[in-house]
Structures are given as C-alpha cells and as structure tokens.
C-alpha cells in the first residue's frame, strides 16, 4: 500500500491506495473520504476497558476504524486541527505519542496507553501517553509544522511542543530559568529531554493558541 501526505504542512492529509486484502487502522473520525470499494469496520481500541482508558486519558477515541478492500480503493485520512502529518516506520521498536497525536497505523502495530507520570502532568503534557510498537507504519499529526531531532545530551523543549519521543528519551520538567525569568519570560515550565533517542516537536502549541485567543476575547 503506497501513501502520500499532501497539502503539507498546514492542512496535511494522508492519501492511501489500498490494494486487494490490504487494510489500515485509523482513529475514529479520521476518514475524510474513500472509494466505494473500501469497507469500514469499527472495533474497540484494544478492548472495552483499554478503549475507555484511551478516551479518558489518552486523548484518543474509544474506537478505531479498520478500512479494507477486496479490490482496490483510495482512502483519505486527516486530523481535526491544522498542521503537518508525519509517517514513521517501526521495526520492532517503540514510540510514545502525546495524547491526540495518533491518526493511523498498519494492522501490525500495537496501540497501548502508558502512564506518563506527574512530572508530565505538571509540564502540561498529560498524565498518560500513547505507546505504539510492533512492525509497520504509524501516522501522527501535530498542530503546525513537525520537526524531528536526534538527542544526545540535554535539550530543552517548551511545554506543549513535544509530540512524540522514543522510550530511550529521558524527560524532566523544570523551570525555564531562574524563578524571575521563569515567571516573566512567558516560558514558565519547560521539558528537558536527554538522549540517546529521537523526538518530534510541533511548531505551534495548543496552549499558545488558547492564550492568544483568550487575550483577544476581552
């Protein structure tokens, strides 16, 4: 199955060409359009309890849709907010995704929910994160552009900009600088990541959008 990420980076969407017998698993409501030859079946995301947990804590849907075709067909998947989409290929390795980032994956990928800890909650990244592992492709989205970085030593990411990271990445949440600069620089808390490993970041943050919108409401 070949794929193309189109209209990057602002309004990215995934175009997949399914051949006979191929299938793809996607987040509920991710489908924008598809050929009449493609059929969709809905199932709990990893079972009833796991599905509910993903809805409550992982920012994902309780259900996932599996798209398949007996002949061939086209499928367009998208995300609810403007921004880029990235495709990564897992070869038996694991990746953590921030809540709401997951869009689709090959059927060989396992989706799980993991405890991220209070430090991530304080850092504004949520108590839980999605764990994707196995062999196959995973598509995830971000608000704004996506850029990746190989981390060796410590690297600082503002809270709300981390989208995906490998389990080998160490994460600490701390103040951006001293007490004064942390409060008045507008940076507040930041995430300090350390390698080895790869992280994916988004060029915009939802908190930034919310704060900007809020400032124009009064």
């Amino acid at each position: 199955m070949d794929h193309e990420i189109r209209n990057r980076p602002s309004f990215a969407n995934i175009k997949l060409n399914l051949s006979a017998g191929e299938s793809i698993v996607a987040e509920a409501d991710a489908m924008a359009s598809m050929s009449g030859t493609v059929t969709m079946s809905t199932r709990w995301s990893g079972g009833v309890m796991k599905g509910i947990a993903k809805r409550l804590f992982g920012g994902e849907s309780m259900f996932v849709n599996e798209f398949t075709t007996e002949s061939e067909g086209e499928l367009i998947l998208t995300q609810p907010f403007p921004g880029d989409i990235e495709c990564i290929e897992l070869k038996g390795n694991t990746m953590f995704l921030q809540p709401g980032a997951f869009i689709a994956c090959d059927p060989g990928i396992t989706l799980g929910l993991g405890w991220a800890g209070f430090r991530m909650l304080i850092g504004g990244e949520g108590l839980f994160r999605l764990k994707v592992s196995g062999e196959g492709r995973v598509w995830f989205g971000a608000y704004g552009g996506i850029f990746q970085k190989e981390i060796e030593d410590e690297y600082v990411v503002d809270t709300g900009h981390l989208v995906a990271y490998e389990p080998s990445i160490g994460v600490k949440v701390g103040m951006a600088g001293g007490l004064f600069s942390s409060f008045f620089s507008g940076e507040g808390l930041v995430t300090r990541v350390s390698g080895p490993g790869r992280i994916y970041m988004q060029s915009r943050s939802f908190d930034g959008l919310a704060a900007w919108t809020n400032s124009h409401l009064w």
């Binding site: 897992l90 070869k91 038996g92 390795n93 694991t94 592992s133 062999e135 490998e166 490993g197």
Partner: peptide
Amino acid sequence: GVFSSSIDGGRAGA
C-alpha cells in the same frame, strides 16, 4: 533495540 546509521531510519527493535 539498536540505534545505528546502518539501519534504514536509524533504529530497530533487536
């Protein structure tokens, strides 16, 4: 897992 530039994508389970 392994990180190495000789792997396509730089990483794989092992």
